[in-house]
Simulated assay, not measured.
Amino acid sequence: MSAAAEIVARLTGREVLRTRSGPLPEAELADGWVVLKHAPGAAAAEAAGLRWLAAADALSVAHVHGADDDWLVLDLITPTRPTVAAARDFGRGLARLHASGASAFGSPPPDGPAAAWIGRAPMANVTGFDWPRWYAEQRVLPYVRRAVDDGVLSLVEADVFERACARFPDVAGPAEAPARLHGDLWNGNVLWAADGVCLIDPAAHGGHRETDLAMLRLFGCPHLDEVVGAYDEVAPLAGGWRERVPMHQLFPLLVHTVLFGRSYASQALAAARELR
């Protein structure tokens, strides 16, 4: 038995019929194929996030067949071509997912750790109830400070973000209840399958619903206008949401600045300057 087969068998308690190699090792169980993902130290948080999103019964979410601190066994999703119909279903489902709510901004999934991850960057799930203040303190400024410490941003550039954060209460729009966010909703984590969209790789937490939508727009999504239009039909967005997109994009842009350097710093600074 291969090492991958041994891990899948251990985590699922099921017999592995055969395996095959690929970007992620794949294993066949009696009822279909699964993939084995190595996420050292982050697997438990990802598994909790997937289960929390699935519990909303709003969208298809990759099923967790088994997990420990370092490994996840997930559905194998066969991708297909995006369609307008699937995009509209995705928008409606995303609205229902957000509406299923969270106990606070920054709340982790019920069985998830407070010390979580977004991609390979740490993400602390510290709770709060004033969204503009929470977003500044927990989702923007921590990554600004890390980028300064790493020499990616200068102190002068950090001041641009601090001044933008001071503007959040004035530009955040009407107060909204915490939404159940995917949290890392770029197009690579939206798999288009034969039966519709399936979500993978979340950084799930309680947040503002416009953040998920802004991330989709930042990194591109097929038929995005259809997605947002269908979303808005189910859960109308507050007036001025388009003008708030740069504010909500600060979080993912700063995460990418921390992970990938100056190539994203200019985009993050441009978004921050729109709020000055």
Rank of each mutant, 00 (worst) to 15 (best):
N125S: 13
A147W: 02
D159L: 12
L213S: 00
D69I: 08
A158I: 13
A124E: 14
V140Y: 00
A5C: 10
T257K: 05
D225K: 13
L275A: 05
E243R: 15
P142L: 07
G93Q: 04
R18V: 14
D31R: 15
Y143C: 00
V152N: 01
T19C: 09
F260I: 02
L253V: 09
G49D: 08
S263V: 11
A42Y: 02
A175L: 04
G229Y: 09
A179N: 01
G196P: 05
H223T: 10
G188D: 11
V73F: 00
L254Y: 02
A116H: 12
F260V: 08
A67M: 09
A86N: 08
P252A: 12
P40R: 06
P252F: 01
G66V: 12
F219Y: 10
S263D: 07
V156P: 04
R88W: 07
M247F: 03
H63I: 07
A193Y: 08
W52S: 11
G101Q: 09
P110H: 15
E137G: 06
A67N: 04
F90Q: 06
A54M: 07
L29F: 06
G119A: 14
I118V: 15
G106K: 01
E28M: 10
R120Q: 14
L59H: 08
A58C: 13
I77K: 02
A48T: 04
A30G: 12
A271E: 08
A268L: 01
L50P: 00
T78I: 06
I7H: 07
A99C: 12
E6I: 14
S263M: 09
A194I: 09
E243K: 13
P109F: 11
T83C: 05
D159E: 14
L250V: 03
F105N: 04
D232T: 14
G32V: 01
V255E: 01
G206C: 05
A175G: 02
G41C: 07
G128E: 05
V8R: 04
V73H: 00
V171K: 12
F129A: 15
A230N: 07
A265T: 04
F90N: 08
A54N: 02
P142C: 09
F219C: 05
L74K: 11
P132Q: 03
V197Y: 01
L141P: 01
H223W: 10
L29G: 05
A99S: 12
A271F: 02
R139M: 02
R51N: 12
A114M: 14
V35Q: 06
A166T: 12
L74H: 06
F129R: 15
R20I: 11
P246A: 05
R18G: 12
L269H: 00
P40M: 08
S100C: 12
A177W: 08
W117A: 11
V16A: 05
R242W: 13
D212A: 09
L181Q: 07
R20E: 13
A54T: 05
R244M: 03
F90T: 03
F219M: 05
A179P: 01
L53D: 07
A85S: 11
P222Q: 10
I7M: 07
S100M: 10
R51H: 07
E6R: 15
P109A: 15
E274R: 15
P169W: 00
D149T: 15
A30R: 15
H65N: 08
T19S: 08
A95M: 03
L254M: 07
H182P: 02
A4S: 13
A204I: 03
R242V: 14
D75E: 10
L259F: 03
L53M: 13
A147P: 02
E26D: 09
T19D: 04
